[in-house]
Amino acid sequence: MNGLENEAADGHFEPLLQVEMAMGTFLSDWHNCDQLSTFMARMISHNRTDPIRHSNFFSFALNELLEVSFRGGSLDGRIGCAVYRHGPMERVKLTFPCPPGQRQFYREAVSKTRRGNAYARYIDAISTDLAPSREAVLLDLAINFDARLRLEESDPPQITIVIDLPLEGIVS
């Protein structure tokens, strides 16, 4: 991911941390999701009001995002994860290669998190799905973490999921 500072200037979010790796490396081990999310959460939470609990919440949310990219990922290209901060809000930008056939899926999944029936969809997913779909995971972040999600598609074949997490307010 390039132009970190330029991206951060948007909305006054300050860059905190950025990680990038080859998708092949990322996809080589499922535990990369857990380890990356735990590490990054600790790093960015150290100066929050309650670092331990902020880290716990942030790790949950980031792990879910990483798992989404893991499950939909292909071996080519690179995955990048950047974290920004503005006041009580953290912004995560997760960029990864997305085959053309999946772009529409992500557009719709992210869009559904912002619709009025998001909660009903989430409850329906828990109630009926045997395993969580990627759509249900994104709904979980919107419902349980008050996250705001959007998609950036400026650099195909990459897509970027942008998620704003107001965790400082939830934790403290």
């Binding site: 792990n63 879910e64 395993a131 249900a136």
Partner: peptide, 12 residues
């Protein structure tokens, strides 16, 4: 301490 959605859905 942590539980992902895969586990949550399974237990739920």
């Amino acid at each position: 301490v942590q539980m992902n959605n895969t586990a949550f859905h399974a237990f739920a």
